[in-house]
Amino acid sequence: MAEYKAFQVELADKIAHVQINRPEKINAMNVDFWSEIIEIFRWIDETDEVRVVVLSGAGKHFSSGIDLMMLAQVANDLGKDVGRNADVLRRKILQLQASFNAVDQCRKPVLAAIQGYCLGGAIDLVSACDMRYCTEDAQFSIKEIDMGMAADVGTLQRLPRIIGDGMMRELAFTGRTIDGHEAREIGLVNRTYADQSALLDGVMQLAGQIAEKSPVAIRGTKEMIRYMRDHRVDDGLEYIATWNAAMLQSADLRVAMAAHMSKQKPEFAD
């Protein structure tokens, strides 16, 4: 497994634990972060042994968002011509978006375990995950508004489908901070835990349950959920019919049915 500067990655029991590993910088997202996360999720997608992903942050905080030193570097690359500056900025924004698109488009379920700060770009990141869990004292904020800009890496596009349009607008316009309790109330996280240790234990347990399921069934379920974000119900029904015309021929279906009838735990191939 490759070594990374901004992450620590471990694979055990078919669970890939991807940990942002810059605790001394509050896990701020630097240049290495944005390129490495694409490499990591490409590896996850291509590695059949990985069935589920847990995304966390080392230390007291999940992430404080984009590294301000990186923003300063982007500013230094700008010149005097407005048109050329606009082209540079647009390409940079699309590049950053691709990093979180890699998380969103991953074939395997991604569970975010959040403690402490989850600010700015970190909201963009967890919005691209399938499920989110946090400690009671976690702090969430769409901080971009306080920096004089609109969030541009996925929050405004993905978050309305998670917490609803009205609540997303309130948080995006005010930049106010919410804790773990309110995050659960509005549906940003599925559940809260007393502390970081309980959080990781709980999320790993959930990941373990998912890892026991048929990889073919999990892949199809995630694909259909993602597809329905941008399509009508009849489109989705047509797609699942075509998808399952192939996937229902998988050996996993026979394995699952045999295990159910014999009251035994099924064992699926990677």
Score class of each variant (00 low, 15 high):
residue 1 M to Y: 09
residue 11 L to V: 03
residue 13 D to K: 14
residue 13 D to S: 15
residue 14 K to E: 14
residue 17 H to R: 11
residue 17 H to I: 07
residue 17 H to K: 14
residue 21 N to D: 06
residue 21 N to G: 11
residue 25 K to N: 08
residue 32 D to Q: 01
residue 32 D to E: 07
residue 33 F to E: 05
residue 42 R to Y: 14
residue 45 D to C: 09
residue 48 D to Y: 05
residue 56 S to N: 01
residue 56 S to I: 02
residue 56 S to E: 03
residue 61 H to P: 07
residue 64 S to H: 06
residue 65 G to K: 07
residue 67 D to A: 11
residue 69 M to S: 03
residue 72 A to M: 05
residue 74 V to S: 06
residue 74 V to K: 10
residue 75 A to C: 09
residue 75 A to K: 04
residue 85 N to I: 10
residue 86 A to C: 09
residue 86 A to P: 09
residue 91 R to E: 11
residue 92 K to G: 07
residue 99 S to V: 02
residue 100 F to G: 01
residue 101 N to L: 01
residue 109 P to C: 08
residue 110 V to Y: 01
residue 111 L to G: 01
residue 116 G to P: 04
residue 116 G to E: 02
residue 121 G to A: 10
residue 131 M to R: 15
residue 132 R to K: 09
residue 134 C to T: 10
residue 134 C to V: 04
residue 138 A to S: 11
residue 142 I to C: 02
residue 144 E to L: 13
residue 147 M to K: 08
residue 148 G to S: 06
residue 153 V to K: 11
residue 154 G to W: 01
residue 159 L to W: 00
residue 159 L to D: 00
residue 160 P to W: 05
residue 163 I to T: 00
residue 167 M to L: 12
residue 167 M to N: 15
residue 172 A to I: 10
residue 177 T to D: 08
residue 180 G to D: 04
residue 180 G to L: 05
residue 181 H to C: 02
residue 181 H to N: 02
residue 181 H to R: 02
residue 182 E to N: 00
residue 182 E to C: 04
residue 191 R to F: 04
residue 191 R to Y: 06
residue 193 Y to D: 01
residue 195 D to K: 04
residue 195 D to S: 09
residue 201 D to R: 03
residue 201 D to K: 11
residue 208 G to R: 15
residue 209 Q to P: 03
residue 209 Q to G: 09
residue 211 A to V: 05
residue 211 A to H: 06
residue 211 A to D: 02
residue 211 A to F: 04
residue 215 P to G: 12
residue 222 K to D: 11
residue 222 K to C: 05
residue 223 E to N: 11
residue 225 I to W: 06
residue 229 R to C: 05
residue 230 D to C: 05
residue 231 H to I: 04
residue 237 L to I: 10
residue 240 I to L: 06
residue 241 A to R: 08
residue 247 M to G: 00
residue 250 S to R: 00
residue 253 L to D: 13
residue 257 M to E: 13
residue 266 P to L: 13
residue 266 P to K: 10
residue 269 A to D: 05
